[in-house]
Amino acid sequence: MKASNLGNTYNDFVVGDTIKHNLSKTIFESDNNLFSLLTMNHHPVHTNVDYCDKAQHGEVLVVGTLVFSLVVGITVPDISGKAIANLEYESVKHLAPVFINDTIYASTKIIDKWITSNKEKGIIYVETVAFNQKSEKILSFRRKVLVPKL
């Protein structure tokens, strides 16, 4: 049996490549409720069906930071599993609403990479885009990740 590969090293990343992540996640009502409780986000647009029936989208919206967290998690086996540190997140964009029972998928493009002054570590600069089950873009963000060279 071959062990799973959690993450990649600097030399594995090729600028210009796009990785289609194998993991995906359907967001259930329990996910959204627990996340709302844990983060103290009690806005009725995330927790109150009656309120949402009368609001813009007509249904409960999933908390945006839950979507962001799930998408980051989806990328871990390919992007940051061997990371020394996630250095920076930037340009987080919520591109479309996410609803209960939506399924989230993601892909990541390698934008750039460079070796640090340490020479045994490198930084990869990537952009991740998340999609729902209808292939609609729902979220995008960029980040810099410090990874070992080998």
Rank of each mutant, 00 (worst) to 15 (best):
residue 11 N to T: 14
residue 13 F to E: 03
residue 13 F to T: 03
residue 13 F to W: 03
residue 13 F to H: 03
residue 14 V to N: 13
residue 15 V to Y: 06
residue 17 D to K: 11
residue 18 T to M: 00
residue 19 I to W: 07
residue 20 K to Q: 12
residue 21 H to L: 06
residue 22 N to D: 13
residue 23 L to T: 04
residue 24 S to C: 09
residue 26 T to V: 02
residue 27 I to T: 06
residue 27 I to R: 04
residue 28 F to S: 10
residue 28 F to Q: 00
residue 29 E to F: 04
residue 29 E to L: 09
residue 30 S to Q: 10
residue 30 S to K: 08
residue 32 N to D: 08
residue 33 N to M: 09
residue 33 N to E: 10
residue 33 N to F: 08
residue 34 L to E: 13
residue 37 L to A: 15
residue 37 L to K: 14
residue 37 L to S: 15
residue 39 T to Y: 08
residue 39 T to A: 08
residue 41 N to K: 04
residue 44 P to R: 11
residue 44 P to K: 13
residue 45 V to S: 11
residue 45 V to M: 14
residue 45 V to N: 05
residue 46 H to P: 12
residue 46 H to T: 06
residue 46 H to W: 08
residue 47 T to S: 15
residue 47 T to M: 11
residue 47 T to Q: 07
residue 48 N to V: 02
residue 49 V to N: 10
residue 51 Y to W: 14
residue 52 C to K: 06
residue 53 D to P: 01
residue 53 D to K: 13
residue 53 D to N: 14
residue 54 K to S: 14
residue 54 K to D: 14
residue 54 K to P: 03
residue 57 H to L: 12
residue 57 H to E: 13
residue 57 H to F: 15
residue 58 G to P: 06
residue 58 G to I: 09
residue 59 E to T: 11
residue 60 V to Q: 09
residue 60 V to D: 11
residue 61 L to N: 06
residue 61 L to W: 01
residue 62 V to Y: 03
residue 62 V to W: 05
residue 62 V to K: 00
residue 65 T to H: 07
residue 66 L to R: 01
residue 66 L to T: 04
residue 66 L to D: 01
residue 67 V to L: 11
residue 68 F to Q: 05
residue 68 F to W: 09
residue 69 S to G: 15
residue 69 S to P: 02
residue 69 S to I: 01
residue 69 S to Y: 04
residue 70 L to S: 01
residue 70 L to F: 10
residue 71 V to K: 03
residue 72 V to R: 07
residue 74 I to F: 13
residue 76 V to H: 02
residue 77 P to V: 07
residue 78 D to T: 13
residue 78 D to G: 10
residue 80 S to D: 11
residue 81 G to R: 10
residue 81 G to Y: 10
residue 82 K to E: 09
residue 83 A to E: 06
residue 84 I to K: 11
residue 85 A to G: 09
residue 87 L to S: 07
residue 88 E to T: 08
residue 89 Y to Q: 12
residue 90 E to C: 08
residue 90 E to Q: 14
residue 90 E to F: 11
residue 91 S to Q: 15
residue 93 K to H: 09
residue 95 L to F: 04
residue 95 L to Q: 13
residue 96 A to N: 13
residue 96 A to P: 05
residue 96 A to E: 12
residue 102 D to Y: 08
residue 103 T to M: 00
residue 103 T to C: 03
residue 106 A to K: 05
residue 107 S to H: 05
residue 107 S to Y: 00
residue 108 T to Q: 01
residue 109 K to F: 02
residue 109 K to E: 12
residue 109 K to N: 07
residue 109 K to V: 11
residue 111 I to T: 07
residue 112 D to E: 10
residue 112 D to Y: 11
residue 114 W to F: 15
residue 114 W to A: 06
residue 114 W to L: 02
residue 115 I to T: 14
residue 115 I to G: 06
residue 115 I to K: 13
residue 115 I to E: 15
residue 116 T to Y: 02
residue 116 T to K: 09
residue 117 S to Q: 12
residue 117 S to P: 00
residue 118 N to F: 08
residue 119 K to G: 05
residue 120 E to S: 14
residue 120 E to M: 11
residue 121 K to E: 15
residue 121 K to Q: 15
residue 122 G to V: 00
residue 126 V to L: 04
residue 127 E to L: 03
residue 128 T to S: 10
residue 131 F to K: 09
residue 131 F to G: 03
residue 132 N to Q: 01
residue 133 Q to I: 00
residue 133 Q to D: 12
residue 134 K to A: 10
residue 135 S to Y: 12
residue 136 E to H: 01
residue 137 K to W: 02
residue 137 K to M: 10
residue 138 I to W: 00
residue 139 L to I: 06
